[in-house]
């Protein structure tokens, strides 16, 4: 769909040019900036050590891929579609040991990352998007996009405004084709749910969904299931009421789980919603590298909206010492 860059390990290639790494050149090496395109076509900039970490993670995900293939071979291609343990009601009816074992295996596997090639298929099934799509005629998406073509609303005006400002510079998204595709998905959804219409932030979410799902229709259904079933309701409606609720909950959660950080931020009169609003509305797509965001989304689609709170807490915890060193004039910039 978008420019497929060779997936060679640039860092390894880079390393081969520095055959012997003596400690003395470590520091210099860390300062060298490497620029490359990641799996989803985003330009990533980092020093050599960053790139090495990224490659280690990728290797782990590749190994995970082998586990997925092995499971498919032994349990059948759609083994994970059996009822999950979180569906309490159906659990009683089908309380089979194998189903439970599968659900536990699945949860653990997903937390370790879904291999990129399997993502579209697994997301589509596990999120409920496939089910949602199956309840309407096959032509639903095409009919919708045709019916709304050429219509101008406040939502479409805002969408048009945001298309070039959604991951600018991306090798596919920031092209006329990319803009047009993203536009159809967002405009289509704005007519499906007039309470939401279009809310800034959805542009980033839909864009990343497009990159993963490969087809715009599947991206559309993923967006629909996210807003209608997975996330807290009314996060994106005209007064962002769901978003306000999330921020209040997160504030309380932070006070409970990281009391020292919370007290420190309070002393600085720094409301956590100042940074966390963007995280929750863009589902981290604007703040984390794409592959990290998608790892979060892997879990989000299976375990639900609580995952956003886990990740937000984790970010605060991992910056714990930085945050507590900063005072008044130098607030956290993550």
């Amino acid at each position: 769909m978008y420019g497929t860059q060779s997936k060679r390990d640039l860092a390894l290639e880079f390393q081969s040019q520095i055959p012997i790494l003596r400690p003395s050149i470590h520091a210099r090496r860390a300062n060298l900036t490497v620029k490359f395109q990641d799996l989803y076509g985003f330009t990533v900039e980092g020093n050599v050590d960053d790139v090495n970490v990224l490659n280690e993670v990728r290797e782990k995900v590749r190994q995970q891929g082998r586990v997925w293939w092995a499971l498919e071979a032994s349990k059948g291609a759609n083994w994970y579609l059996q009822p999950s343990i979180s569906e309490g009601q159906s659990l009683k009816a089908s309380l089979k040991l194998s189903a439970m074992a599968n659900a536990i295996t699945l949860k653990r596997l997903i937390r370790k990352g879904i291999p990129p090639v399997l993502r579209p298929k697994i997301w589509f099934s596990l999120s409920g998007a496939a089910k949602k799509k199956s309840t309407v005629p096959d032509s639903y998406y095409n009919d919708l996009t045709k019916a709304v073509e050429g219509k101008v609303t406040p939502a479409t005006r805002q969408i048009d405004h945001d298309l070039p400002r959604t991951f600018p510079g991306h090798s596919w998204l920031d092209t006329p084709e990319g803009h047009a595709t993203l536009r159809r998905v967002l405009v289509g959804y704005s007519f499906r749910d007039s309470d939401v219409g279009y809310c800034q932030g959805l542009n980033y979410v839909a864009a990343l969904l497009l990159l993963v799902m490969k087809t715009e229709e599947d991206a559309f259904w993923m967006l629909a299931v996210l807003l209608e079933n997975v996330l807290v309701s009314d996060c994106y409606t005209t007064n962002l009421s769901g978003c306000h609720v999330e921020q209040r909950v997160f504030k309380d959660l932070l006070a409970k789980k990281c009391p020292r950080i919370a007290t420190h931020l309070e002393a600085l009169e720094f409301d956590v919603s100042l940074v966390a609003t963007e995280w929750f509305l863009c589902l981290f797509s604007k703040s984390l590298p794409s592959e990290t965001t998608l790892r979060v989304w892997d879990v989000l689609f299976y375990e639900g909206a609580k995952v956003l709170f886990h990740v937000a807490l984790a970010i605060f915890k991992s910056y714990n010492s930085n945050i507590r060193h900063y005072c008044g004039s130098r607030l956290l910039k993550l």
Partner: peptide
């Protein structure tokens, strides 16, 4: 840059500003 992303929620930058011999941080 004409490559700025649309701002969601809020974002900030700080700059040190000097008035005579005193430093202020403009947030």
């Amino acid at each position: 840059s004409n490559q700025y992303k649309a701002t969601i929620g809020a974002d900030f930058l700080t700059k040190e500003v000097q008035f005579e011999d005193r430093q202020f941080t403009l947030q």
